[in-house]
Design a protein around this nucleic acid. Structure first.
Ligand SMILES: [Zn+2]
Ligand SMILES: [Zn+2]
Ligand SMILES: [Zn+2]
Ligand SMILES: [Zn+2]
Lengths: 130, 130
DNA sequence: TAACAAGCCGTTATATTATAACATTTTTAT
DNA sequence: ATAAAAATGTTATAATATAACGGCTTGTTA
């Protein structure tokens, strides 16, 4: 069983902010939030974000340049992500659907290219906004 | 039959650059290319890009902040896009696979949310780079 | 234990991507 | 002809992200 990753101080601080947030956070909004904890520069935030992404503890919502904590029991699968995004209230949910992930992981295009990673973003209206 | 959209001058200029390109282009690289045609400011480029996106003549590769011409016979379906991206040579191909698009267009998550749009990006190594 | 590598940290400066705000002109539809 | 809608041009600025430099800590190993 793999040892739980120990996060460094800055990584921990940034991760906690993202984990507690109700929705995706932008890098500079994270920076603002962590200033009281002594993190002052964008680069400090971006470095923590990079590491957390690499570990699969967070994901980036590409269409929003924002970050969310992984909701799939600390996703080893930073390589296979799918999100649902409400176009009205901006609510983002990580989709955890094994049929979908199996389908996409097995997908091969006509050129025979085999993929090692994918990211899927669905857009629509959530229950509340519909 | 819907009349072919007539592009304005700036839209046409920007579109031609993207269409002729061998790969995805970034906004400021487009700006550089079109300066000889009298387009001087970022906004002029971004406005053209916005319109072209809306028309489905181009798509944005979110993970790269770059733009490609639509290869699916001028995609009415700017709402259902899928790309394959080589992580080594950066080659990007628009995937045109009806099984995949049917599957994704019909996808419903556990909350019953129905989607009006999606974007999927696959990453891997292309034939050449493999 | 010396010395080396790897990872993390802090700081300043700068690059890259994108939009705000305002004034004007062109195109389209009535 | 008139009014509404779309496109243009320009300046300034906002938002997102990385480069470059130097130092500190920790664990490995010669
Ligand atoms: Zn996850
Ligand atoms: Zn909503
Ligand atoms: Zn297309
Ligand atoms: Zn390649």
């Amino acid at each position: 069983m793999p040892q739980a990753q120990i996060l460094s101080k800055n990584q921990q601080v940034v991760f906690e902010i993202i984990e507690k947030a109700k929705g995706p956070l932008k890098a500079y909004s994270i920076l603002y939030d962590v200033q009281k904890k002594g993190i002052r520069a964008p680069l400090q935030v971006y470095r923590a974000l990079d590491k957390l992404l690499e570990l699969g503890k967070i994901h980036k919502i590409e269409s929003k340049n924002a970050f969310v904590a992984c909701k799939n029991s600390n996703c080893e699968i930073t390589k296979a992500t799918a999100f649902s995004i409400c176009e009205k209230c901006e609510k983002v949910t990580e989709i955890n659907n094994s049929k979908l992930s199996n389908y996409l992981s097995a997908f091969k295009d006509s050129t025979g290219m085999k993929y090692s990673k994918y990211n899927l973003e669905f857009f629509g209206l959530c229950k509340k906004c519909k």
